[in-house]
Design a protein around this nucleic acid. Structure first.
Lengths: 153, 153
DNA sequence: GTATGGTTTGACCATCTCTGACTATACATA
DNA sequence: TATGTATAGTCAGAGATGGTCAAACCATAC
């Protein structure tokens, strides 16, 4: 099977090589593969996800770009990675969040101050919305934070 | 990534160095970068904002000028308080959030790592919901964070 | 051959940059 | 004081990106 999406995926990974990040131009890539620009978004959304260890940033307008970063492979990241997949999942209650953060602080991966700020940002009070959505948003957000912690080293 | 606006921004910051203020001539700068004079205004409006800690003064006519100064804040809590009321308000875009955080970092109220985490927690990607709600949630959450920062001392 | 789910596309949206026409103000000088 | 010159300011619009979403398309399992 070699649909365009896989080709684009391989191309991006190839371009990335051993680097930690790569910058692409959505339109150029689309032109290179003779596909709709939104196809690039599809590939990014389905293959370069947080769960797979990727973080994306982008900017529109003149000289806009899409930057894709990934995490390195080391023990600490493997640990954080397992948290992303197993402990956090698709929903995360506030209580569970604080438990995980306590562990991260005692492991000296997160500073007490940072823990405070994360807890505040993702508290029930901060996330003003229905309960189920809250847990989903908290999960997504916290997974992004864990990813960021992985990239930081 | 090297549009004129960024070059001009860097040029001004470079010219400023460690000084508290710098004076430029709109027309000369425009000529130096071979762009429309109004481009200078665009750069000033988008990059040298109050949220980023800059204040501008200017004068038209013969030997006119534009003076750009950095603001210093002495009373930390008063400053944070004004942020809560004036800069954040009921809705907060991601871009505005990063601008405020940049200022807080340069004022050494927030550490670079903390900025990263807050940005990540409150990114559009983390907050998976319709746009207007996003900005509302981000505002509420960030105001909570600012309050926490006030209490911390 | 039908159902299911991943893939692809296109129409429309959001955002950032850049320009030019027009406006406002300060100064110099007649 | 009146007028011309030298500035800077404003704003609408064009151009250049990337984002979203729903519908069409297609491959596979049953």
């Amino acid at each position: 099977m070699s649909n365009i999406s896989e080709l684009i995926e391989r191309f991006i990974i190839g371009t990335m090589g051993d680097a930690e990040s790569v910058e692409i131009s959505r339109n150029s890539l689309a032109e290179h593969f003779s596909c709709a620009p939104s196809q690039i978004n599809y590939v990014l959304d389905t293959r370069f996800t947080v769960d797979k260890g990727f973080i994306k940033e982008s900017r529109r307008g003149g000289s806009g770009y899409i930057k894709i970063s990934r995490v390195k492979n080391n023990d600490k990241n493997a640990y954080l990675s397992s948290l992303v997949c197993e402990s956090v999942g698709d929903e995360l209650t506030y209580k569970r969040l604080t438990q995980i953060l306590d562990k991260l602080v005692s492991d000296e991966i997160v500073l007490p101050n940072e823990k405070l700020l994360i807890e505040t940002a993702l508290s029930d009070d901060s996330l003003e919305m229905p309960f189920t959505i809250k847990d989903k948003v908290r999960a997504k957000s916290f997974k992004n934070i864990l990813l960021k912690l992985m990239i930081k080293n």
